[in-house]
Write a protein that binds this DNA or RNA. Sequence first.
DNA 1: GTACAATAATTGTATATACAAATGTATGTT
DNA 2: AACATACATTTGTATATACAATTATTGTAC
Lengths: 148, 148
Amino acid sequence: MNVEEIIKTNQQMPLEKRTLIHLALVVNKIDEEIATVLKPFDISIQQFNVLRILRGQNGKPANLSTINERMVTKMSNTTRLVDKLILKGFVNRTVCLKNRRKVEIVITEGGLNILNKIDGILFEAEKRILKNFDKTELHELNELLNKF
Amino acid sequence: MNVEEIIKTNQQMPLEKRTLIHLALVVNKIDEEIATVLKPFDISIQQFNVLRILRGQNGKPANLSTINERMVTKMSNTTRLVDKLILKGFVNRTVCLKNRRKVEIVITEGGLNILNKIDGILFEAEKRILKNFDKTELHELNELLNKF
DNA sequence: GTACAATAATTGTATATACAAATGTATGTT
DNA sequence: AACATACATTTGTATATACAATTATTGTAC
C-alpha cells in the first residue's frame, strides 16, 4: 500500500501526518473487507460486535452499559442497535428483575447459529488481510500500536 | 493501550484477530482526537479532507471525481458533502464550460482562512497523538503498514 | 417517608452515510 | 444525423449515528 499513490498526492507530507493517514487507509481497507464478509448475512460490523460480546457472556445476560464498554467502536446509541438485532431474532431483551432500570440482553439460538456460520469465513478473511505478515511482524505491529 | 483491558475481555484472542482489533481501536482514538480539534470550527473530518484536497489544487478547480479519488475515506456521496461546504461559504461550485456534465469546485478565501487556522492546532494534535514514537519507530510502523 | 441526586435506558431530532435510480451531457458508431 | 452507450453528478430513500432531552427507577440524606 502506497499512501501517496492512493490519495493521489505528489507533495511529500511530514512523517507524522503520513503515518496517521496511513493508519486510516489501512483500517478503511480492513473494514471494507470485513463488511463484505458480513454483508451476505445482513449484519453490520457493529451488530456483529454486539453479538460476539453476548456470546462471550456464556449465557449470562448483559445490560446496555456492559455491552457499551466492551464494544470496539463505541456507539452513542446501543439501544437501537439492539433493536435491530431483536427484529432479526438474534437477541432477546427483558427488564432486569433486581433493578428495573436495567435490561437484560441475551443472544438467541439463532444468534449463536449465525455467529457460527460467520466464524470460519471471518477467520479466512483475517488471514487474507494479514497474508503478508509473519508472526514476528504481527508482534512488532502490536508493540508499536501499544504506544498509542 | 492494552487491547484486552479496553474491550474488557479475559479470553485470549488469536494474534491475527487481536491485531485487527488493535488497529481499529487506535484509529478510533485518533479520529476522536482529531474530531475534537475540528469541532470548534464546525467542520467534520470528511469536510476537512475535501478542503485540504481543494487547497492542494492551488487554484485549479477540481471536479467531484477528482475529489473522490483523493479522499482518504471514500464517500458514496460527495455532492452533499460539497453542499455543506458551500453553505458554510468555504467552497464555490460552478458548471464546467468545456464539459457541462462536470462541475468545477474551488476553495474560497474563507475556506483557505479556516484551513490556516486549523493547520497549527492539528499539527499540535498530531504530535500529541504520536508523542510516544521516535522517528525510527514511525518509519517502522509505516513499513509494516505498507504490507497491507 | 419525602426530597433530591444518581443511574440506566429510551426517545426525539438533526445530520451523515450507503446504495440505487434518475438526470443530463458527451462520445462513438454506423 | 440518429442511436446507443458511457460518463458525471444529483436525487430519493433507507438506515446509521451523534447528541441532547426525557422517562423511569433506585439510592441516599434528612
